[in-house]
Nucleic acid binder design. Structure first.
Lengths: 351, 351
DNA sequence: CTGAAAGCGCTAACAA
DNA sequence: TTGTTAGCGCTTTCAG
């Protein structure tokens, strides 16, 4: 069996208390003793059992991470960012995914809380109305949200409303007037709603009428015929699509391609997420980029600051800058009018 | 504070032992007692502290997962597969990534072992020569490898050699004779070596001379000039590239595109991994597919079987079928000779 | 500077 | 059927 502190104590000829001190507060023990203990530790290849420590009610050095899915690189990148800092700082990560399901979110949070994680980093479907978050605000572990863009809770995110607004303005600047927003199963998520609001805002500001969002089945191999019809027929058919995320945009691009519609000639497309692989598409996908790795790292840092009691800033939420990625999926439409705001198309990042 | 079993016992008017039994072996306690205890549990919102259980040396219900990176969807998909089964079966996942670094692999395994995980699911750079795996074979937790294609250890993988061989044969069947293999920083990994061996085997069988693998900097924005020169100049320039993974293939495609080389007209490309997003590229990336989610799930099931002592099969390794995904990145070259094996281009999966 | 002992939350003999 | 008790590995008073 793996050696315990007792074995080390016996081997070194000291008490377990001394061994414990040698490990946790070396300066409080006699150097000679320390050396002997260290020798015993090496000889036995002793590694302290964290469970013993954890039970003492000390720091568990455990952080829970709750994500909707890993199939979307957005979250994999966030997790990667978190993991970088976590492993550098000697914390362990306990991971649970929810598939955007409220029931599973609840279960994940409870499980992690039961496991006595010191903190939680999570992305939930809807942050503001999440009953469990109120609970853990009260007595749960400290937490920080990622990608949940709310001022009511500790969170790290881009400004979804503003980002969507910037993106749609760019489409409008390219001469598009009939712009449709597509959303996936995330229609119920706060992010999707905020992005829709941003879309609507930009449309209205330009004197255009926002259309209701069109829901797309995310996992379908092809676009539903009804959707295709909506996109391709009639004089009122949209000339540009704003997709609530890049995965959706890619599925739509494929669907259009199969239906023999050309992007961007027949339809312009703007995504949201800025997935790296979107740039490899043909044409490269224009998209609103979010700094996912940075969001993960920032969430980690905020969480650590809160845990150590350092952080007592007045505002809970941190907004990171989004970027506007140009791509070949947006074409200009001749409108016969001058195009204000044309400058946003030059590839500069908008904050 | 969160309630403990003591609080429940006091509240219900029974001993902690009875509460424990009510939770873990309900049938051994009086129904009336059970009801009262349950009531107390509900009233206090008690959730047993797993750390207490874990310390008892019972099952920790903790599984460690060690992956090279989450930036590659291959591993994110594996993890997703594992997580599905893990959460369904009430296990918690502890995740660590290694960035293909042996030092970090060692650290991850030791950390997880110290945390008393019941089992380990991992992908290492080189399974056969990994010293730590011998250690844990001896007294560590049970483990199963993913994507490490070795007969010496418990593992779930495709047959990398055979898969690469199949892929290269398809290129040859299309008339290609100067085929080059590209590898990333994974050149040191067992997978990359096996894939190269498969490439070499297919080449030799066809009477062609395999070239040494060309190493590509994975993270570079562009292909190095020396690499580009190698790919594009001279009469001996390759007509097809076999890339050791899809991410690499995508980077190469972009590099070629920027250098004004057309795929597949000027260069055919075959990837390895079968990433879903490869199909969205233009042209869609031809690739050898691995069933990542299934590999994750199979690894989980094998691990569980080993943990419960069920599994005592004679062979340690499980080989899952790979697929050959057609795509637009491979063009046929007129050779003036008949093309044996042409059937592999019809889109059927080769096992 | 070191040791003895209590106790973290829980389970599993063993008693009653 | 229920209660008492020991102890998992560790940290931390409190004495010495």
């Amino acid at each position: 069996m793996t050696p315990t502190i007792k074995d080390v104590a016996a081997h070194a000829g000291f008490s377990i208390a001394t061994v414990s001190r040698a490990i946790n507060a070396p300066h409080t023990v006699n150097p000679v003793t320390l050396a002997k203990v260290q020798q015993a530790i090496d000889a036995l290849k002793f590694r302290p059992n964290p469970i013993g420590r954890q039970l003492r009610g000390e720091r568990t050095r455990l952080i829970g991470v709750v994500l909707p899915t890993l199939a979307n690189p957005v979250f994999a990148e966030c997790l990667q960012g978190i993991d970088e800092l976590a492993s550098a700082q000697g914390f362990r990560l306990m991971l649970m995914t929810t598939q955007y399901d409220a029931q599973r979110e609840r279960h994940a949070i409870e499980t992690l809380r039961a496991q006595r994680v010191e903190g939680l980093i999570l992305t939930v479907a809807d942050a503001d109305t999440h009953p469990l978050l109120d609970d853990i605000d009260a007595d749960g572990p400290l937490y920080v949200l990622m990608h949940n863009d709310t001022t009511r809770r500790p969170s790290v995110s881009v400004d979804n409303h503003q980002a969507a607004c910037d993106g749609v303005r760019m489409l409008i600047a390219h001469g598009h007037r009939r712009i449709l927003m597509l959303a996936g199963t995330l229609a119920a998520s706060d992010r999707a709603r905020q992005r829709y609001a941003g879309y609507a805002h930009a449309m209205e500001q330009a004197g255009l009428t926002p259309a209701p969002p069109l829901e797309i089945d995310f996992n379908a191999e092809n676009l539903a015929p009804s959707v295709l019809a909506h996109l391709s027929t009639g004089p009122a058919r949209p000339t540009a699509l704003f997709c609530s995320n890049d995965l959706l945009a890619m599925v739509v691009m494929r669907g259009l391609c199969r239906a023999r519609l050309r992007v961007p000639h027949d339809m312009s497309i703007l995504g949201f997420d800025g997935l790296a692989m979107g740039e490899l598409l043909a044409p490269p996908l224009a998209s609103i980029g979010t700094p996912n790795g940075e969001i993960g790292r920032a969430a980690w840092q905020r969480l650590m600051a809160r845990i150590s009691g350092e952080y007592v800033g007045p505002t809970l939420d941190l907004t990171l800058p989004h970027t506007l990625r140009q791509g070949g999926t947006i074409s200009a439409i001749a409108t016969g009018v001058s195009v204000p705001g044309r400058d946003v198309t030059r590839g500069d990042a908008l904050i």
